[in-house]
Each structure stands twice: as structure tokens, then as C-alpha cells.
């Protein structure tokens, strides 16, 4: 039922034709190893897409290239129809400079597997630092936005604590708040529960679930949590060996997987 709401919302968008994110024949090599082999993928405004697959299938590389942490070896990634790693000069694509990257990056946010909080800053400053220095918000505005968001993730009482004083689950919730206050159009989640103790996974997933319901941010989630992927995603993409093996609605992917590889992958997951 959440689906229909979302569909209504996105159909109101004037530029619903243009995908928010588009990968066209994107390849990535690390040395001699080709981790992505000609990826074509589109993400619509507000769409929630889960990337699943065995380790080494290239799913993390896909979002790291969008965050500009990894440069593609070939192909074009576009955001709002504008090439991310390239600048258009006339009809030619030339490598993007820092200014271009910063402009496009403002629409992208990311949450990391290992949180990567800033250990020398309080929780509040972790969340206000970028809004103040990057968005140019006043200290008061940034504080208000940060406190509001930290309350939402249940950490309103930890404003003056330092990251080392928090549990893994709490750290990850701060990291989510830190990314959300930048108001990105697409949010990337890189195995955000993989480094957590099992009993802390639930609280982080719940925060992301709430976020998915409340905002019209697009989300790309690399995850090994199959129930979560099924729950939250509008579309699930199964990767194998640097290529999309199968994609579709979560029900179809999990109930009636077509490819043998996906069947094998899922059965291994259900057994563990």
C-alpha cells in the first residue's frame, strides 16, 4: 500500500521521464580484474533500489562510483541527465574537474559500512559540520536541523557525546542523520549493518525504513539483509560477476527467481 502512495508522488513529478541516476555501459577495472562489465541501470526519482549479490559481484563499486569515490573505467554515469564524471563541452565529453564534481555531489549522500564518523567532534558537530561549511547554513539553522534529525533517529540525548562513547548501532544512526541533513536526492547505503553486532542491526534498519516512508529521496541499498530488501525496495537488482543477472519487483525476485544463480544465492541465504 506504501507503493501506491509512492507511485502517485512520482507521477506528479514534471520530469518523470528522466531517470535521476543512469548508468550507461559502465565498466570498472581494478588492475586486471574487471569488477563491472558494461552496467546499464536506471534509478527514478524517489525510487528505492536494493542491490544484492555475492561478494565481489560489484555492488559496492556501483554506489562508490556514484559517490565519486571510485572513477569508472568506461561508460557514463549521469545524474539528472548530466554526466557525473564528465563535462559536456559542445558535443564532447571531457573528464570532470573538482568544481563539476562538487556541484553534482550535492545531490548525493552516503552511509558507510564502518560509519566513518569524525572522532574528534561531538555527535552534534558531526551532523552540523557539513551543513555549516558546505551548505553555508548559520550555526542556529544547522543546529536546529541536526537536533531535529538526531531526535528522529532516537539520539537526541547524545548531542554532546563523542563517537567512541556510542554503540555501533548508535554510530550508524548518527551517520544516517549526518547524511540526511544535507538533503540529497539520492542516498547510498553501503552494507550499513554488516559491521554491527546482530542485536544492533534492527534499530538501524528501522531508522532506514522510517526514512524511506517519510521522504521522497531515492535510495540505493547494498545489503545482505534479504527481509529488509524485500520490505523496503521498489526494485531488487541481483548482480553476479559484474553484471546484472536478474532484476524486478521484490516479490518476483524472492518468490519466483528465474536464473539458477539467483536461486542458488537465495537458497544459500535462507539456509544460513
Amino acid at each position: 500500500m506504501g507503493m501506491t502512495e509512492k507511485q502517485l508522488k512520482s507521477s506528479n513529478k514534471p520530469d518523470k521521464e528522466m531517470p535521476l541516476v543512469q548508468y550507461e555501459n559502465v565498466t570498472k577495472k581494478f588492475g586486471d580484474v574487471e569488477v563491472l562489465k558494461g552496467l546499464d541501470l536506471e534509478i527514478k526519482q524517489g525510487e528505492k533500489v536494493a542491490l544484492i549479490g555475492p561478494s565481489g559481484s560489484g555492488k559496492t563499486t556501483i554506489i562508490r562510483m556514484l559517490m565519486t569515490l571510485e572513477k569508472p573505467s568506461g561508460g557514463v554515469i549521469s545524474l539528472n541527465g548530466e554526466p557525473l564524471w564528465h563535462k559536456k563541452i559542445g558535443d564532447k565529453l571531457v573528464p570532470a574537474d573538482e568544481k563539476h564534481l562538487r556541484k553534482l555531489r550535492s545531490d548525493i549522500g552516503m552511509v558507510f559500512q564502518h560509519f566513518n564518523l569524525f572522532p574528534h567532534m561531538t555527535i552534534l558537530r558531526n551532523v552540523t559540520e557539513a551543513p555549516i561549511h558546505v551548505l553555508g547554513l548559520s550555526k542556529e539553522e544547522a543546529n536546529e536541523r541536526a537536533v531535529d534529525m538526531l531526535n528522529k533517529v532516537g539520539l537526541g540525548d547524545k548531542l554532546d557525546a563523542y563517537p567512541e562513547q556510542l554503540s555501533g548501532g548508535q554510530k550508524q544512526r548518527v551517520a544516517i542523520a549526518r547524511a540526511v541533513v544535507m538533503h540529497p536526492k539520492v542516498m547510498l547505503f553501503d552494507e550499513v549493518t554488516s559491521a554491527l553486532d546482530p542485536e544492533l542491526v534492527g534499530e538501524v534498519l528501522q531508522v532506514i525504513r522510517d526514512l524511506a516512508k517519510e521522504t521522497d529521496m531515492a535510495m540505493i541499498l547494498v545489503t545482505h539483509e534479504m527481509d529488509f530488501a524485500r520490505d523496503i525496495a521498489d526494485r531488487v537488482v541481483f548482480l553476479h560477476n559484474g553484471q546484472i543477472e536478474e532484476e524486478g519487483h521484490p516479490e518476483d525476485i524472492f518468490e519466483t527467481p528465474e536464473s539458477e544463480r539467483l536461486q542458488g544465492f537465495l537458497s544459500r541465504f535462507l539456509n544460513t
Partner: peptide
């Protein structure tokens, strides 16, 4: 390197990343 990556993800400039993080 995670600190650098987090500051890139928050869209800090090179100098901000160096100075603040």
C-alpha cells in the same frame, strides 16, 4: 581513508576536508 571518503560524501572541498577533518 574512511575519513576522507566521509568528507567527500558530505561534499566538502579539498581544503575543508584537510582543515576540518
Amino acid at each position: 581513508s574512511g575519513q576522507t571518503e566521509a568528507s567527500i560524501a558530505l561534499n566538502m572541498s579539498n581544503w575543508q576536508r584537510m582543515r576540518l577533518i
